[in-house]
């Protein structure tokens, strides 16, 4: 059966959820072969096998952490040569998209980015993309070379399907460009213990209606009761109430969770651009005319400082 390469997103062998989604999607078009770059392949292999990876091609070298993007492109290119896959799937993270971009140019391949769904087709995999703030759904296909496709988080529910997950070493030789951009330092964001915004199943966002950094705890408490990530509108970010990394929208992150809760957010088109593909949308706003209500499944017209704490309390009490 044809093989599909899946680039693994991991932290020292701890596999991130979007990779499990990719393995699930990859099985629709062939047998997944995982490519694990960096430390921890043996740890990762059991998880990767559990989700359907027949093989895990592993390489570790200081270049992967010490330089930007290109060393991973070198490795993936060599994995493509070794395997001859029907497609290469990469997580749609900022880094994943850059790896895919450079790989596509090198392979002379077409690239489809930010796919939200993927199915087998007569002429190769057909990807679904969502365009222009989700106003359109587009189905596209790569017509040249080995298709390189980046897939957005939350595009599928990970499904286990046991496979061998056999670790095989991948020999990588680095080109001249590999050491082009040196990493001087990496500063991880302070851990909040909450899920990653773009990967979270539930997102609770606050806007200008939250009215101050000191009030954001009402949003955070609700998020914590739901195991959710916290987002913010640009108005809240520009006012300095919440970090830029949490901004949802056209110039922030695009999220597509099972549930999006907008509190004190009016629903400007640029905000919608980042959350409109959420499966269920809920809003709390004291203005019944707020445009956010045009797209909600359920809306409460009221003061967020009354509604959110009550909601948090109810969620907690249901947990028993």
């Amino acid at each position: 059966m044809a093989e599909v390469l899946v680039l693994v997103d991991h932290v020292d062998g701890a596999v991130r959820k979007p990779t499990l989604e990719l393995l699930t999607i990859a099985r629709r078009i062939g047998e997944p072969v995982a490519v694990h770059l960096g430390a921890g392949a043996d740890t990762a292999a059991s998880t990767l096998g559990e989700y359907g990876a027949t093989r895990v091609l592993a390489a570790d070298a200081p270049e992967f952490g010490g330089y930007l993007v290109v060393p991973k492109v070198d490795a993936l290119e060599q994995a493509v040569e070794a395997v001859g896959p029907v497609a290469v799937l990469v997580p749609s993270s900022a880094e994943g998209k850059e790896i895919a971009a450079r790989l596509a140019v090198r392979l002379g391949s077409g690239l489809i980015t930010d796919a939200v769904d993927l199915e087998a087709g007569d002429d190769g995999p057909v990807a679904t993309q969502s365009a222009f703030a989700a106003a359109f759904t587009v189905k596209s296909r790569v017509t040249n070379g080995v298709p390189v496709i980046t897939v957005k988080p939350n595009s599928a529910a990970p499904e286990a399907a046991s496979a061998a997950g056999a670790v095989e070493p991948l020999e990588v030789s680095f080109g001249d460009a590999a050491k082009g951009t040196k990493v001087v330092s990496r500063t991880p964001r302070e851990s909040t213990g909450r899920p990653e915004l773009t990967e979270a199943a539930i997102v609770v966002s606050g806007g200008r209606g939250v009215n101050g950094a000191e009030n954001f705890h009402v949003v955070e408490s609700l998020a914590d009761s739901l195991g959710a990530a916290v987002g913010a509108s640009r108005a809240a970010v520009d006012a300095g109430w919440y970090p830029h990394t949490n901004q949802v929208g056209q110039t922030g992150k695009t999220v597509s969770p099972q549930l999006y809760i907008a509190a004190g957010i009016s629903g400007a088109i640029q905000h919608r651009a980042g959350m409109q593909t959420s499966k269920t949308i809920v809003a709390i706003n004291k203005d019944a005319e707020a445009p956010i209500f045009d797209l909600v499944d359920y809306g409460v017209v009221g003061d967020l400082f009354q509604v959110l704490p009550q909601l948090t309390e109810e969620v907690e009490s249901r947990k028993g």
Partner: peptide, 25 residues
């Protein structure tokens, strides 16, 4: 090197249920 096979205008989201908070929102 990539080709759009098909596109569809996504049906606009429609407002679901709206309730006014009367203390039990």
């Amino acid at each position: 090197w990539s080709k759009v096979e098909d596109f569809a205008v996504r049906p606009p989201r429609t407002t679901g249920e709206l309730v006014k908070d009367e203390g039990d929102g």
